[in-house]
Design a protein around this nucleic acid. Structure first.
Lengths: 162, 162
DNA sequence: ACCAATTAGAACCGGTTCGGTTCCATTTCA
DNA sequence: TGAAATGGAACCGAACCGGTTCTAATTGGT
């Protein structure tokens, strides 16, 4: 399954916690405790997020981490890219020069980019603010096309998480 | 990075090859050769796709595989699900009953489902027919929102594949 | 000046997963 | 009956990844 790495998973949880009190800086220890993520992992993740400039850090006593921007301006896509690298499904055509050798019969190449964009856009349209917001405030999702493709008929696939 | 498994990658290539001649059944050996995928892997993948009823197989001499439906009615989402299981990014909330223990401060749960749906829909809107079609026929992608989120500014992320 | 709190960064390790192969059984056609 | 195929399972090695640990650098308080 196209699964998200634990790194990104935890990262989003931590960022969501910070989004509840933007402006305020919290030390890693507190974030770890309140988010139920191990302190070691929390440290690792926060460092990566700081390096990616999604967080600002303050060292020394009473140091900590705070969001670098307003939660409305931080997207899930950015968090994932900061922790797991670029969002791209493709492994068919590597950046290497040689190509995959079957380009002639592989018009899929350019089409992959469309898929990648679609996914990336989907991720880029969800902000931290939305993730932090209590769920009931939402109306129907505006960016998700409601009409499932007719060929798609496995409702269990959507159930995924309990 | 949110990467696609090799299984799905190869699977899509193989299916794309079959989509070039729907109706016609081809043996695994031929598909392997023409798609530059190892015969062993090809066999494994085709068996999985057949079991998922995306392909119909014919055993014995002069046997082979053919698309179970018209390429227009087979989506990338189906292929991926057949080979890699359900498309769901979430690892935060497992289907297990216990929950993750921090539900109180984790309103993200329901929001994840929106993300999952968005991604799955993006994948479900790309058909095999589109993947097989020569790239030049496409106009601008209709299902991809053209306006990139302002917070998103890393063009390299789209470059991904050479 | 010193100590405690805190982040920065790298190295490291064990285990799971996954790409890939191999083997054998079954079906089908000539 | 034998060759050509698929069906299905087991198996293996290795890369990746979740997670830890250690040391250095920075800062605030006393």
């Amino acid at each position: 399954m196209i699964r998200l790495s634990r790194l990104s998973d935890y990262g989003i949880v931590l960022m969501t916690r910070l989004a509840r009190e933007p402006e305020r800086a919290l030390p890693a220890s507190v974030l770890a405790r309140e988010s139920a993520v191990s302190p070691a992992m929390t440290g690792k993740i926060l460092k990566l997020l700081a390096r990616a400039e999604l967080l600002v850090s303050h060292r020394g006593a009473h140091g900590g981490y705070a969001l670098a921007r307003a939660p409305e301006r931080i997207t899930i896509a950015e968090i994932i890219e900061a922790l797991d690298g670029p969002i791209a499904l493709t492994s068919c055509l590597r950046p290497s020069a040689e190509g995959c050798g079957i380009e002639a019969l592989c018009p899929a190449r350019t089409n992959w980019q469309r898929i990648n964009r679609a996914i990336r856009d989907a991720l880029a349209e969800v902000t931290l603010a939305e993730m932090a917001r209590p769920v009931l405030e939402f109306g129907p999702a505006p960016f998700v096309s409601e009409h499932a493709s007719p060929a798609v008929r496995d409702p269990a696939a959507l159930a995924g998480t309990s």
